[in-house]
């Protein structure tokens, strides 16, 4: 049986992990590779590296980092953040990333999805969608959630699939950081509207939230950052819990 995936997200700034602390047996929690290996040992099913480096100049170090990651880790990983063109995607995929995640750049230029899919296959293209619940429904936001687009979230997800996306990474801004659980309603709506895997993101605070999102939606995976970084929910403990709750887990 296909298993539900648990995906830790690592924020990278200037080649270093941010927010990563508190693992007593890690020498350098700021080293993305050490942290990644730790997550793999714990049973992470996949990893997402999100580059939040502000300047383009410093971003050039990303490809070097991706090369190092690819040499060291033995599970699939996605790289996102600042991928605005086919050239940007190529640099990261040639460095060894299994998938790239595009967000604002896909909204601005939807044909970018198709360009990357044609070059590397749909399985390489993750379209990340940040959504917020407004009076007239769930809408897409870009630029790290700062700019509203007025685009309907479900319609955009369906369009992304049609244009060649292999996966949707859905983050609810209403839930992100609240630790009150994933956005069940919109995750359910999007995971039913598309026939590609959907990764639920934003709001995980307790183990039961993962159970809820897997039981109440068609999400294929769930992503979280801080609860794993800060050791609030150790991945092995989460996986044992989900297994006991009859969620298919590796």
């Amino acid at each position: 049986m296909l298993k539900k995936r648990i995906i830790p997200c690592l924020d990278i700034k200037d080649g270093r992990t941010v927010k990563g602390v508190n693992f007593i047996d890690i020498r350098d929690a700021g080293d993305p590779i050490e942290l990644a290996k730790r997550y793999i040992d714990e049973g992470a099913d996949e990893l997402v590296f999100l580059d939040i480096t502000a300047t383009i100049e410093k971003r050039k170090t990303l490809a070097e980092l991706v090369k190092r990651i690819a040499r060291e880790i033995n599970i699939p990983f996605t790289v996102g953040g600042g991928i605005n063109s086919l050239e940007d995607a190529k640099a990261v995929i040639h460095a060894g990333a299994d998938k790239v995640s595009i967000n604002s750049s896909a909204v601005k230029n939807p044909s970018l999805i198709t360009e990357i899919a044609n070059e590397f296959g749909a399985q390489c293209v993750v379209v990340a969608i940040d959504v917020k619940n407004e009076t007239d429904g769930w809408k897409v936001y870009v630029s790290g959630g700062k700019i509203p687009t007025g685009i309907d979230a479900v319609e955009w997800a369906v369009q992304a699939e049609e244009r060649g996306a292999g996966e949707i990474l859905l983050t609810s801004m209403n839930n992100d950081g609240t630790k009150s659980g994933f956005a069940i309603e919109i995750t359910d709506a999007i995971s039913k509207a598309v026939n590609i895997p959907v990764i639920a993101s934003g709001g995980a605070g307790e183990k039961v939230h993962f159970k809820e999102v897997f039981e109440q939606t068609k999400a294929s995976a769930a992503l979280a950052a801080s609860i794993f970084h800060f050791g609030e929910i150790p991945i092995p403990e989460l996986k044992i819990y989900l297994q006991q709750e009859n969620i298919p887990i590796r």
């Binding site: 049986m1 296909l2 995936r5 099913d45 749909a122 590609i196 895997p197 068609k218 294929s220 995976a221």
Partner: peptide
């Protein structure tokens, strides 16, 4: 869902 993506036994 297609592709079949993820861990399977």
């Amino acid at each position: 869902t297609v592709p079949h993506m993820g861990w399977n036994n």
